[in-house]
């Protein structure tokens, strides 16, 4: 997994590329944790994330919970298989998921 970072309209976009699995998810957690603690709004662009296993889901949930009321944390652009996993596990009802990065940014900035 590689992590690419960019900023658009005041929102930090983190784009993991490759497999978000038991071995790589701690790196994602270490990167996202301080951002949401600082109160930054973060969109995780999943368009290049080939896979997300339950270890990855767990990290997303921990971060979403840490973000709480102070910052916004939104997932965007999951591939068909990742979207399916988010749905069957029920995570899609706990974390905001948008179809693309643009709508995720609009959502964050409208809150």
């Amino acid at each position: 997994m590689e992590l690419h970072e960019s900023t658009q309209d005041g929102v930090t976009i983190i784009a993991p590329k490759g497999n978000i699995n038991r071995a790589t998810s701690p790196e994602l957690q270490a990167r996202l944790g301080p951002m949401v603690e600082e109160g930054r709004s973060v969109v995780v662009d999943l368009s290049e994330a080939a896979t997300v296993s339950s270890a990855g889901l767990r990290v997303m949930f921990i971060i979403a919970k840490a973000a709480g009321e102070n910052s916004k944390f939104v997932l965007a652009s999951p591939n068909e298989m990742v979207a399916d996993i988010l749905n069957v596990t029920g995570f899609a009802s706990l974390i905001t998921v948008k179809d693309d990065v643009e709508s995720a940014i609009s959502y964050v900035n409208s809150q």
Binding site: N19, N21, R22, A23, A50, T51, V52, S53, A55, N79, E80, M81, V82, I85
Partner: peptide, 11 residues
């Protein structure tokens, strides 16, 4: 789809 299933289930 098959690669996704293999990667995730092995993990």
């Amino acid at each position: 789809k098959a690669v996704f299933a293999l990667q995730v289930t092995l993990d």
